[in-house]
């Protein structure tokens, strides 16, 4: 037994020694930023003498947990996020000794509600989407009470919409896309009812329960994190709608079309200038303490924020990223290269 313990601890020690010599950047975090981050990593690995960074897709929240666990080569150097770092996460980082963090705003991603090109294009408002998808909706008689969602077809929601059954394929609650959809669409739809909006100040938990709960009957179908699956299902069922990131619509623009939301079509330009209402920023966070310890971090940041990648015609836009405007981009780049610590 003693021998076994000695052998085990030897193993652990030697592994620690090996880990101390980590020569590739480790990135964790959002599955939405993953496709962009991997492209930069691959080009970085090919065009420099540094090793190709390793990128894990853990989801935004999971990534933050790993990122904020502490400093040292056994923790990741960067974390991707499809929303801004939360105050609680920032505090957790501070508590664990990750005191200096650089924030990089990469660009934007639109969330689209789309259907097969074989069907006609939908035009919905956020209020209609809320009414179609919420678990409980305000009663039709205008009184300030909630009833279980009675709507079966889109026509029930609004006479202008087609008489198709409500059938929406979307991400599960663990997904960042779902978080953003709930926040940008459901909440805004919710707020169009004055008495619910007023509740936000009085009873935040109840407000959240009303606005953030998606119906659980067959109208909203959780399709897992695999956006490709949604694309396949949409092309075989023209009556269904799907919710996913703009990059998937962009890659499958021959089969699918985006629905107009509040009268705006989800185009590259409309998302970039912010007129399309359902878009969110994409970030990644860098542990400043690792700069200089793990080789290549500065150079990687330089590559990521360069015009060739994040710019208007950079290779990330080919992958569906909506770039920042020029002034903002230059400011982000300057801040990032100076490793300006994040303040929340």
């Amino acid at each position: 037994m003693k021998k076994l313990l000695v052998a085990l601890s030897m193993c652990a020690v030697s592994a620690n020694v090996m880990a101390a010599g980590r020569d590739a950047i480790n990135v964790v975090g959002s599955s939405t930023v993953f496709p962009f981050s991997t492209v930069v990593a691959e080009r970085f690995g090919k065009s420099t003498d540094f090793k190709t960074p390793k990128i894990e897709s853990t989801g935004t929240g999971g990534g933050m947990k790993l990122f904020c666990a502490g400093t040292g080569v056994n923790t990741p150097d960067m974390s991707n996020a499809s929303r801004r770092m939360k105050k609680t996460e920032f505090e957790m980082c501070q508590k664990n000794g990750v005191t200096s963090i650089t924030e990089v705003l990469v660009g934007y991603d639109g969330i689209v509600i789309s259907n097969s090109k074989e069907a006609s294009q939908m035009s919905v408002t956020r209020k209609e989407l809320y009414l179609a998808l919420a678990k409980e909706v305000p009663a039709k008689d205008g009184s300030e009470s909630l009833i279980p969602n009675p709507y079966k077809t889109w026509k029930d929601v609004s006479p202008a919409l087609p008489a198709n059954k409500i059938e929406v394929l979307g991400p599960p609650p663990t997904s960042g896309t779902r978080d953003a959809f709930v926040e940008l669409v459901m909440e805004s739809g919710c707020n169009s009812f004055g008495w619910i909006k007023a509740m936000k100040k009085k009873d935040k938990n109840k407000y959240k329960a009303i606005c953030h709960s998606v119906r659980e009957d067959q109208a909203y179908i959780e399709t897992g994190e695999n956006d490709n699956l949604i694309v396949q299902k949409l092309s075989s069922n023209p009556k269904a709608l799907g919710i996913f990131g703009f990059s998937f619509l962009d890659q499958n623009s021959d089969k699918l079309q985006g629905s107009k939301v509040d009268g705006k079509e989800p185009t590259f330009e409309a998302i970039a200038d912010g007129s399309y209402p359902v878009s969110r920023p994409l970030y990644f966070y860098v542990k400043n303490a690792h700069v200089g310890q793990v080789p290549g971090i500065k150079e990687f940041l330089d590559e990521f924020t360069s015009n060739a990648s994040m710019g208007d015609e950079g290779y990330l836009t080919d992958k569906g990223l909506i770039p920042l405007n020029k002034d903002k981009r230059e400011k982000v780049r300057a801040d990032v290269l100076a490793l300006k610590p994040l303040q929340l």
Partner: peptide, 8 residues
Amino acid sequence: NIFGLPRS
């Protein structure tokens, strides 16, 4: 986390 073997 305890033995500290390298991730991935």
